[in-house]
Design a protein around this nucleic acid. Sequence first.
DNA 1: GTGTATATTGAATTTGTATTCAGTGAACAG
DNA 2: CTGTTCACTGAATACAAATTCAATATACAC
Lengths: 189, 189
Amino acid sequence: MGRKEQKEERRQQILFKALELFVTKGYQETKISDIAGELGISVGLLFHYYESKEALHYELVKMGVEGTKYPNGTGFEKAIDYFAGFLKVLLETVKTNPWVSQIFILTSQARRPGMPEEARKLAMTIDQIGFSAKVVEKGQKDGSIREGDPVALSAAFWCSVQGIVEQHAYDGTLPLPEADWVTDILRRR
Amino acid sequence: MGRKEQKEERRQQILFKALELFVTKGYQETKISDIAGELGISVGLLFHYYESKEALHYELVKMGVEGTKYPNGTGFEKAIDYFAGFLKVLLETVKTNPWVSQIFILTSQARRPGMPEEARKLAMTIDQIGFSAKVVEKGQKDGSIREGDPVALSAAFWCSVQGIVEQHAYDGTLPLPEADWVTDILRRR
DNA sequence: GTGTATATTGAATTTGTATTCAGTGAACAG
DNA sequence: CTGTTCACTGAATACAAATTCAATATACAC
């Protein structure tokens, strides 16, 4: 293995270990020495790869933001299917592919007060709630989604998902819900 | 006003300012000097009233744990009404009485990894999810709650509520949902 | 009024952790 | 083989924030 690949691999190692710890212990509670320690490398080496703890965090949030491509809500029979579909995939992923869901959580958390400012601004640029509110309106017209303030409905849905996935990150033994249960927040009865 | 009352008042001032900041900025991000600064008192004085930041936090969590008396789920026509009722009251309170909901959030957050150990243990003693799972079972028998793993249903409900209330604490402009929307996670269709 | 207790301050002190740095050895190019 | 580059280390350094402390002001008891 050439030095280039070696280097890239190490960067990834650090990045994903940081992701895991940021999500399970929280950003502030994760010490640089924790990350280095778990990887069995020195603290100095970590700084050879990333100039700061914030830079490491920023890189992860950037992955989250760039990787988040919301389908436009068209191409579904009914708008409710957009939410049901998205959530089904997300919950499946949470079970099998930890890092995808970890990135999801990290990016959501990055919007909170107290998080590093640059990453926070970046994370704010994806506005799930605002975007989904439009899909909700569509759903109210096609009869698949209940009446009510579209933003409030969208917020209720996303905050619920956030709460569920986040709690599961802290406690992996907690059973995950069926996607349908949660989409029933939106579904017209 | 006597010295006794004076002292008690100051303790309360500090306590509730800490609560506000812990919830809006997060525990780690809230500096002792922030609390003192906002109250216009010196850092030293704060330590005259509370021996440490952790003690302050612990006292708040204790309030939350002691104040949390869950009705036993009896006295309702159907079990689903227990959840609907609780949530209705909670959402109403969130709007009008910030500190009640702040205590709710703080106590939930105190269970997470990275929080001060003593407070964490204390907060763990109230097991909403486990408790509510029993009420869910009742609801499945009386036909008001959908089929499925009671623990998973209970967890989905509480994590959703947590997510919604928490997000609202960070961003007060976010509209709150109707209680019914969220209880539809549980309601049999 | 005088003395004692307590509220209050702001300046040390301590502590925990991010960040820097001088040095070592292994890989690689020529 | 030799010089250069770069991954890597562990010990210093820098810093921010919690905690302590000596000193002062204010309230209260007698």
